[in-house]
């Protein structure tokens, strides 16, 4: 599994086609490498976990495994929104751990060529930290922000995550 993943990755940096799962947050479109995504589920009951950063919504029971849930709206300092029937939890494997991310809506899987990815613009006005933007994809009608969640949980952040009192 692990090696297969690595292989595909190395290919994708060679300018191959890559597949992205696109999702919406506050009407903006984001993309994430499909290989990172384990599954996409509907909203479930989330158990709040005390003394965690505000963007940690809590934990859920994913078929017997307890995984943390992060609200990407809160993480990116976007406005809070009610959950509706399109709200989804994207379960991903980030630095070896399963985690769920709440997004407004998951739209589709798209294929793009590596070459279409442009470096992120130097100024980013929203709360998305520069580091977790892997690039921007500018296609005729749409603008997609490619996220790198591994970077989002950089060593620094992870320490913060666990020690917040």
């Amino acid at each position: 599994m692990e090696t297969a993943l690595a292989k595909v990755k190395s290919e994708e940096y060679g300018g191959e086609l890559i597949q992205l799962v696109s999702f919406n947050l506050e009407k903006e479109e984001y993309g994430i490498n499909v290989l990172m995504v384990r599954e996409i589920i509907r909203m479930l009951n989330i158990t709040r976990v005390p003394n965690t950063p505000h963007y940690v919504e809590g934990v859920i029971n994913l078929r017997g495994k307890v995984i943390p849930i992060i609200n990407l709206r809160k993480k990116f300092d976007l406005m809070d929104a009610e959950y509706d029937k399109r709200t989804r939890i994207m379960v991903m494997e980030v630095v070896g751990e399963l985690m769920g991310f709440i997004v407004d809506e998951v739209s589709e899987v798209i294929r793009i060529s590596e070459k279409e990815i442009q470096p992120p613009p130097p100024v980013v006005s929203s709360g998305i930290e520069q580091e977790c933007m892997a690039g921007v994809i500018n296609q005729a009608e749409r603008l997609l922000v490619l996220l790198d969640l591994e970077k989002m949980f950089s060593a620094d952040e992870r320490r913060l995550f666990s020690n917040v009192a």
């Binding site: 976990v49 005390p50 003394n51 307890v66 943390p68 751990e97 666990s162 020690n163």
Partner: peptide
């Protein structure tokens, strides 16, 4: 007892989690 994973492992006052009869998680 279910572990909360490494991101949530050092929370003060919380030792882990468990899954109750209705499938919800209790800390």
């Amino acid at each position: 007892i279910k572990s909360l994973g490494k991101f949530l492992s050092n929370l003060p006052g919380i030792g882990g989690s468990t899954i109750m009869g209705d499938g919800r998680v209790a800390l």
